[in-house]
Measured scan of single mutants.
Amino acid sequence: SKDTIRINGIDIDVKDLHEEWKRLVEEALKRGDEELAIELLERALKE
Rank of each mutant, 00 (worst) to 15 (best):
S1D: 12
S1M: 12
S1Y: 10
S1W: 10
S1E: 12
S1A: 11
S1H: 10
S1T: 13
K2H: 12
K2N: 13
K2D: 10
K2E: 11
D3Y: 01
D3G: 06
D3P: 05
D3Q: 07
D3H: 09
D3E: 10
T4G: 03
T4K: 06
T4L: 08
T4Y: 11
T4Q: 06
I5Y: 04
I5G: 02
I5P: 02
I5D: 01
I5W: 04
I5F: 08
R6Y: 07
R6P: 03
R6V: 10
R6Q: 09
I7D: 01
I7S: 01
I7Q: 02
I7H: 03
I7W: 04
N8F: 08
N8T: 03
N8G: 12
N8L: 07
G9N: 06
G9A: 03
G9T: 02
G9E: 04
G9K: 03
G9F: 04
G9H: 04
G9L: 04
G9M: 04
G9V: 02
G9P: 01
I10T: 08
I10S: 05
I10C: 08
I10N: 07
I10A: 07
I10R: 12
D11G: 03
D11A: 08
I12T: 04
I12R: 07
I12N: 02
I12H: 13
I12Y: 15
I12E: 01
I12V: 11
I12S: 01
I12D: 00
D13G: 05
D13K: 05
D13F: 09
D13L: 08
D13A: 06
D13N: 14
D13T: 07
V14G: 03
V14L: 09
V14F: 08
V14D: 02
V14W: 11
K15Y: 11
K15C: 03
K15P: 04
K15G: 13
K15L: 06
K15M: 07
K15H: 11
K15Q: 10
D16W: 15
D16I: 08
D16N: 14
D16C: 13
D16R: 08
D16Q: 11
D16H: 13
D16T: 10
D16S: 12
L17E: 00
L17S: 01
L17M: 08
L17A: 02
H18M: 09
H18R: 13
H18N: 13
H18G: 13
H18T: 14
H18F: 07
E19A: 12
E19V: 10
E19I: 12
E19M: 10
E19S: 11
E19G: 10
E19H: 14
E20M: 15
E20D: 11
E20Y: 15
W21K: 02
W21M: 08
W21I: 10
W21A: 06
W21F: 06
W21R: 02
W21T: 13
W21L: 09
K22C: 03
K22V: 15
K22D: 01
K22S: 05
K22Y: 08
R23D: 03
R23Y: 07
R23W: 06
R23H: 06
R23N: 06
L24R: 12
L24K: 11
L24H: 04
L24F: 04
L24Y: 03
L24W: 08
V25G: 00
V25W: 04
V25E: 00
V25A: 02
V25Y: 03
V25I: 15
V25K: 00
V25R: 00
E26K: 15
E26R: 15
E26P: 00
E26D: 08
E26C: 09
E26T: 14
E26W: 15
E27P: 00
E27V: 04
E27T: 05
E27R: 06
E27G: 05
E27Q: 12
E27S: 07
E27N: 07
E27K: 04
A28E: 00
A28V: 03
A28G: 00
A28Q: 01
A28C: 04
A28K: 00
A28R: 00
L29F: 05
L29H: 01
L29C: 03
L29Q: 02
L29V: 07
K30R: 14
K30L: 12
K30G: 11
K30P: 00
K30M: 12
K30W: 14
R31E: 08
R31K: 10
R31C: 07
R31L: 09
R31D: 08
R31W: 11
G32S: 02
G32E: 03
G32M: 04
G32C: 04
G32I: 01
G32D: 04
G32L: 04
D33N: 12
D33L: 10
D33S: 05
D33P: 01
E34Y: 11
E34F: 11
E34N: 13
E34W: 11
E34V: 14
E34H: 13
E34M: 13
E34L: 12
E35A: 14
E35H: 12
E35N: 14
E35T: 14
E35V: 14
E35L: 14
E35C: 11
L36N: 05
L36W: 08
A37H: 00
A37W: 02
I38R: 12
I38K: 13
I38C: 12
I38M: 15
I38G: 07
I38Y: 13
I38W: 15
I38F: 13
I38H: 08
E39R: 15
E39F: 14
E39A: 14
E39P: 00
E39S: 14
L40W: 05
L40M: 07
L40Q: 01
L40C: 02
L40T: 04
L40A: 01
L41E: 00
L41M: 06
L41T: 03
L41P: 00
L41V: 07
L41H: 01
L41R: 01
E42Q: 13
E42F: 13
E42P: 00
E42S: 11
E42I: 12
E42Y: 15
E42T: 12
R43V: 06
R43L: 10
R43H: 07
R43I: 09
R43E: 07
R43K: 09
R43Y: 08
R43S: 06
R43G: 04
R43F: 09
A44D: 00
A44K: 02
A44H: 05
A44P: 00
A44N: 02
A44F: 13
A44S: 04
A44L: 07
A44G: 13
A44V: 04
L45F: 13
L45S: 07
L45Q: 10
L45I: 10
L45V: 08
L45C: 08
L45P: 03
L45N: 10
L45R: 14
L45Y: 10
L45M: 11
K46I: 09
K46R: 14
K46V: 08
K46T: 09
K46Q: 12
K46A: 13
K46G: 10
E47P: 06
E47N: 10
